[in-house]
Write a protein that binds this DNA or RNA. Structure first.
Length: 564
RNA sequence: GCGCCUGUAGCUCAGUGGAUAGAGCAACUGCCUUCUAAGCAGUAGGCCGCAGGUUCGAUCCCUGCCAGGCGCGCCA
C-alpha cells in the first residue's frame, strides 16, 4: 500500500509545488472506505491560492494524471479523494506476501545497527510478581520487532542483585530461616523472611542498622556475606527461569548490578574529572538545578554508591561494548525522573551514551485493594496468573474441542497468550487495573481470539485440495477480500511504527484488526470447493492472512497454534 | 508545594489538526445438516473531565482549573 501512496505523491507533488515527501505527509485515509483509499485535504492551500478548497480539489482532480494507478479521482467537500486500482493493489500485495513469506514485514531499516534493550530486570529475592509482567513482555516484543527491522538486538536482563536489600536479607536469613527451607522453597522463603524483617524492623529499628552493616560487609568482600549473597542469587535465578521458559523469553546477557560494581569508583572519578560534582552534606552529587531537576546522587555520606551510579556505569559500559545506536530501558514510569537525571549526567559528561539512552516507560498495575508492596507481602505471583490462565484454557478446550491432541501443550500457549496479549494490547503508558476476569477472558479482543483465527486459517489450508495460487484475480476484489488484503499490505508500516514509538500495542491492535476482517471474510465467503481457480485464489488470501497473523503474534511473543 | 503521566460509551480501551468519534466486554436479539460458534451479524449506549485561547477547522495543539496515578538527596 505504501508503495502506491508514494507513487501517487510523486505524481501529485509538482501540481502542489512541494516535495513528494510533503505530498505523502498530507495524505489521509478517508473515514468512509467508499470514498476511496487516499484523501488530500485542500483547506491549507486556500489562503495562498486565494481559492475555495472545493475549487482547488476540483482543479487537482482535473489536472492530475495518475496513469493506471487510480480508478477514480473525485473532489468532494474540499478533499481530493482517490481510489486505487483494485486489481493492481491486490496483486501487488498478494504477490509480495506469497513471495516473501515470513519476511514480508522486513524493511531492513536497521541493517548494520545495534540496539541494546534492558528489560525484565527483576530484583533478586523478591518474587517474580505480576508487576514484572509488563517490562518482560514489552521488552521481549520490542526485541523481536527491532530484529524484524534488521537491527542487531542485545537483550540485557539487568538483575537487581545488589543494594541494601541484601543487608536486610542476610540479617533476616540468619534470624529467621533454616537452610533446608531455602532449598525446598527458595523464593517463598526469601520472600517470607523479607516481609517478616520489615514487620519486625518497625518495632526494632536497630535491625535496619544491622542490615546496613551487612551490606557494607558484602561490598567489602566479607566471605560470609558473599557466600550468602551468592546463594540468594542462584536460587532466585533458577525460579525466574521457569517463568521465562513459560513466556519463551530469552536474554543475551544476564548482568546484575553487582557486575558493574568494580566500575563504580572509576565512574564516579570520571564524573568528578569533568568538574560536574559537588559535595553536599558529605554526599557526592551532580547538581542539576540548571535543568530543572533535583540533584543526582552518586555517593552517600558513608561513601556507598547508589542506583544512579550503577546505571551511569552500566550505560557507559554498554555503549563501549556494543556501540549501539539506541539503548532502551523498559522500566516503569515511576522511574522517569531517575532516567532523566542519568541521561542528563551522561550528556554533561559529553559521552554519546547520553543521547542513545531512551527510557521506555510504562504504567503501573493497580489493584482494587490499593497499592501492592513486596514489603507488606501482598503480591500476585506471575507464575500463579499464568497457571490459572493455562488451567482455564484447558477447561475451555475440553468443552469446545475435546478431540484435540496435545491439549496441555495448546492450553499452555493459549493461556500464556491470553495473559501476554492482554498486557500488550494496551498502550504502554497507561496504568492497568489488575482484573482476573479480564486477564482470563478469551473472547473478543484477546490473544486467544487471534490464535483461534490463525488456527481457523490453518485448518482451511490443511483441508484444501488445490494449492494456493493467484489464478483468478477477480476473486481478490470482492467486498470482503479487498479490505482484508489492503490491511495485510500495511504490515511493514505497522512494524516500523511500533518500533519508532517503542509500542508493541500497535502490532497487537493491528493483528486484532486483521483477525476481525479475516473472520468476516471466512463467514461470508466460501473458500473450499467451487470453481478451481477462484478457490485457489481465495486460499492464497487465507495463506497470506495466516502468515501475517503468525508473524504478528511472533512479534508479540505469543505462539501461533495450528489447532485449538 | 513543585514536576511528570492519565482523564473518550456502564466497564476496559483505540483514535486523528479535518468530512458521520470507533472496537471489545457487560445487556438485549438473531445465526451451528456448510471450511473450528474461542466465531459472525444486529439493537442500545457519547457536553471526547471543565473553562478559555490559537486555527478556515480542536476530542487532538496552548493556558488555567478539577479529578486520579506516580515522583521529588543519601531505596531500587
Amino acid at each position: 500500500m505504501e508503495k502506491f501512496r508514494q507513487e501517487i505523491a510523486r505524481k501529485l507533488a509538482p501540481l502542489l509545488n512541494m516535495s513528494s515527501e510533503a505530498a505523502r505527509a498530507l495524505m489521509e485515509v478517508p473515514p468512509n472506505p467508499a470514498w476511496g483509499d487516499i484523501a488530500i485535504p485542500c483547506f491549507s492551500f486556500a489562503k495562498t491560492l486565494r481559492k475555495a478548497p472545493q475549487a482547488i480539489a476540483l482543479d487537482l482532480a482535473k489536472a492530475a494524471d495518475f496513469g493506471g494507478l487510480a480508478s477514480s479521482v473525485e473532489a468532494t467537500g474540499g478533499y481530493l479523494n482517490l481510489t486505487l486500482e483494485k486489481a493492481a493493489v491486490t496483486r501487488h500485495i498478494m504477490q509480495g506476501i506469497l513471495q516473501d513469506g515470513a519476511s514480508f514485514g522486513f524493511t531492513n531499516k536497521g541493517a548494520g545497527k545495534t540496539v541494546v534493550i534492558d528489560f525484565s530486570s527483576p530484583n533478586i529475592a523478591k518474587p517474580f510478581g505480576i508487576g514484572h509482567l509488563r517490562t518482560t513482555v514489552i521488552g521481549h516484543s520490542l526485541s523481536r520487532i527491532y530484529s524484524e527491522l534488521g537491527y542487531r538486538v542485545v537483550r540485557v536482563n539487568h538483575l537487581g542483585d545488589w543494594g541494601t536489600q541484601f543487608g536486610k536479607l542476610i540479617v533476616a536469613y540468619k534470624l529467621l530461616a533454616k537452610d533446608d527451607e531455602l532449598i525446598s522453597d527458595p523464593i517463598g522463603t526469601l520472600f517470607r523472611i523479607y516481609v517478616e524483617f520489615h514487620r519486625r524492623a518497625e518495632s526494632s529499628p536497630e535491625l535496619l542498622e544491622e542490615a546496613r552493616v551487612w551490606f557494607r560487609r558484602l561490598e567489602e568482600g566479607d566471605e560470609e556475606a558473599r557466600s550468602l549473597w551468592q546463594r540468594f542469587v542462584e536460587v532466585s535465578l533458577k525460579e525466574y527461569q521457569r517463568v521465562y521458559d513459560l513466556l519463551g523469553v530469552e536474554f543475551d546477557y544476564w548482568l546484575g548490578e553487582s557486575y558493574y560494581e568494580p566500575l563504580l569508583a572509576s565512574t564516579v572519578a570520571a564524573v568528578e574529572a569533568q568538574d560536574l560534582t559537588t559535595v553536599s552534606d558529605g554526599a557526592v552529587i551532580v547538581d542539576l538545578a540548571d535543568y530543572g531537576m533535583p540533584p543526582c546522587l552518586l555517593r552517600k555520606t558513608d561513601g556507598a554508591t547508589l542506583y544512579a551510579t550503577r546505571d551511569i556505569a552500566a550505560a557507559l559500559y554498554r555503549d563501549k561494548k556494543h556501540h549501539p545506536e539506541l539503548m532502551l530501558y523498559v522500566v516503569g514510569q515511576e522511574q522517569t525522573l531517575h532516567f532523566k537525571q542519568v541521561k542528563q549526567v551522561l550528556t554533561l559528561m559529553r559521552t554519546p551514551a547520553g543521547e542513545k539512552l531512551v527510557h521506555v516507560p510504562f504504567g503501573l498495575f493497580k489493584f482494587p485493594e490499593g497499592k501492592m508492596s513486596t514489603r507488606q507481602g501482598n503480591v500476585i505471583f506471575l507464575e500463579d496468573v499464568l497457571a490459572r490462565a493455562v488451567d482455564l484454557a484447558l477447561v475451555v478446550i475440553h468443552a469446545k474441542n475435546p478431540e484435540l491432541e496435545n491439549k496441555r501443550d495448546i492450553a499452555q500457549h493459549v493461556g500464556v497468550g491470553a495473559v501476554v496479549f492482554g498486557d500488550l494490547k494496551h498502550g504502554r503508558i497507561k496504568d492497568v487495573l489488575f482484573d482476573w476476569d479480564e486477564m482470563l477472558n478469551f473472547d473478543g479482543e484477546t490473544g486467544p481470539y487471534v490464535q483461534y483465527t490463525h488456527a481457523r486459517a490453518c485448518s482451511i489450508l490443511r483441508k484444501a485440495a488445490v494449492a494456493p495460487a493467484l489464478s483468478d484475480e477477480a476473486a481478490l476484489t470482492d467486498e470482503y477480500a479487498l479490505p482484508l488484503i489492503k490491511l495485510l499490505g500495511e504490515f511493514p508500516q505497522i512494524i516500523a511504527r511500533s518500533a519508532s514509538e517503542y509500542e508493541p500495542s500497535v502490532v497487537a491492535r493491528y493483528v486484532l484488526d486483521v483477525a476481525a476482517l479475516f473472520n468476516r471474510y471466512y463467514h461470508n465467503v466460501r473458500i473450499l470447493g467451487g470453481e478451481k481457480d477462484a478457490s485457489a485464489t481465495r486460499l492464497a488470501v487465507v495463506l497470506a492472512t495466516q502468515r501475517i497473523l503468525a508473524r504478528g503474534l511472533y512479534l508479540l511473543g505469543v505462539t501461533a497454534v495450528d489447532k485449538m
